[in-house]
Design a protein around this nucleic acid. Sequence first.
DNA 1: ATGAATGATGTAACCGGTTACATCAAGCAG
DNA 2: CTGCTTGATGTAACCGGTTACATCATTCAT
Lengths: 333, 333
Amino acid sequence: MANATIRDVAREADVSVASVSRALNGHSNVRPELRRHVETVAAALGYVPHAGARNLSMARANAIGVVLPDLHGEFFSETLRGMDRAASERGLQLLLSNLHDGDRAVAMLHTMRGRVDGLIIMAPHIDPALLLAGLPSSIPAVLVNCAAPGKDRPTLQVDNVAGARVMTEHLIATGRRQIVHLSGPESNAEARERIEGYRAAMDAAGLQHRIVAGDFMQETGAALTPQILRDHPEMDALFAANDMMAIGALIALRAAGIDVPGQIALAGFDDIPLSRLISPALTTMHVDIAGIGERAVARLTDAIAGAKDHQLEMSLPELMVRETTQKARVSRA
Amino acid sequence: MANATIRDVAREADVSVASVSRALNGHSNVRPELRRHVETVAAALGYVPHAGARNLSMARANAIGVVLPDLHGEFFSETLRGMDRAASERGLQLLLSNLHDGDRAVAMLHTMRGRVDGLIIMAPHIDPALLLAGLPSSIPAVLVNCAAPGKDRPTLQVDNVAGARVMTEHLIATGRRQIVHLSGPESNAEARERIEGYRAAMDAAGLQHRIVAGDFMQETGAALTPQILRDHPEMDALFAANDMMAIGALIALRAAGIDVPGQIALAGFDDIPLSRLISPALTTMHVDIAGIGERAVARLTDAIAGAKDHQLEMSLPELMVRETTQKARVSRA
DNA sequence: ATGAATGATGTAACCGGTTACATCAAGCAG
DNA sequence: CTGCTTGATGTAACCGGTTACATCATTCAT
């Protein structure tokens, strides 16, 4: 019933456990015939090594823990895809954990200790002090898009401030003036940075900011749009803090009979795969989502190998002009 | 430097390791003052229990392994989301593995032995015999959308045959006659079942089948469409075996200046979130993707708990009529 | 022929927890 | 006062691997 252990194999093959271990792991100092014999017996018993035990004795889990704020939407699935690719190249597995709130966060990190060699933490919505307090300094970790660029941890970030500034400037350059920013939640560091970039560009152009607080969800983008139209009747551009909200807004604008980009320009942020597929195609800031996942794994494996490189790696998003921000038609009236 | 172990805590607190273990795990037979003392010392040392060691000694990993064919696209990210929800409710973590080909598949399963309590295997593209051969019968596993309904394993499947039949009948009922099926890869069990459903409905209506082999990828849907238009100039409906290919086809059709659904009706399968967001919205078979993920975890935890219920659970997809299959306009000519 | 070097194999400690069982002190009934 | 029960704590075995080191048989140089 229960699975065979290495001792069962040793007894059956009439050799020591050490020989079984060596034979099965391809060590060189094993007689070929002995190796074959052990392999035969192991196969006959259906022996599969117990990875947990091996991990314990080798003090190496060959796995990395990934904590994400949310599995919703394409953004995180893309990140995960990048991580998976980089991880399986290195023979690592991913231990996944959704990180809802700050309290359970620390408990979660603890659950991971001893089952993973390091952690990738993506938590723009969690107080970084709280996070780092619960993180033993001995466990390697890379922070992705966290609020504070962990001083003594490798860190990856998207330059949200610059990105939002570029997008806002693009909107201004294409003739928009009454630009409303539909932001992410205040508690989210990336959302705050994007607000900052928007503010900077608007200030530089001498325009007035209008910020409406959203929460990065598509439904909210749709739900808030009618209200935005009411409160800002003069609006000629809507800059959503991420693509999902922009798409929600697009649906609501379409439902309201508003022409995009004819009457109102629409912009998003992230460039999820979906954004080029909708119609009209969404202008957005391209973030190399899967690439960030890959880089995170690369940095983490370096850190696990002992690298002391705690540099902050900042990636600059790129403006993708598509259909939703084409110049407004000359008024037909 | 290295992390404190339970013996460090025991030494520092001047008690035995057993007491530390008991105190920290909330056993009742510990003097309250001793417990507090141990907790204080543990906190002072920054002690975090080594989950791997605990797993080994308790013979319980509190994790489940998930093997997926591909992380691409919304389908699997939705599945994963459902699994994550169900898993974290039960205090389980997910160990993720992308399963590219059959050879590495078995190795992968072995890597998981001893680090997970059970497996969820989603592998419509892998020879089930190969798969089950590599799977020790002692490890609980549930099969999702695998080619063969594992006789002695809990199994979840989508009724692809019925679903494809319903969709094809819908197309016929809305007046289409020259219906081309853009199928998934022959190696994929689900693709084969959808072909079968399409065939059944076409046969029943006395119509001729036209099947073009695709591979479930959006790019392929787009790339194959011009060729399909050339080879089947009379086509009035295109039924893609999944939504991603349908969306690819939609883009290509739009580029070719073809009116959907005016000239050609378009249908997909899966009902990924994206399909209702594109324009025109895609008619498709709704599959409760996240729900299947949740059910898989539920069935697996039952199996881990010792349930012997190896019933095949079949879920019936539901027709979602949207814009791409509205009745063809009366010819304007 | 003898001692050293080499190579294959076995013994047992170790990784870091959990827990059955032993031990011991205190409380209590007779 | 003695013997039994009860509760708290300690001892050590165990989970299933890996591996340093010991052992032993060869082989080879001297």
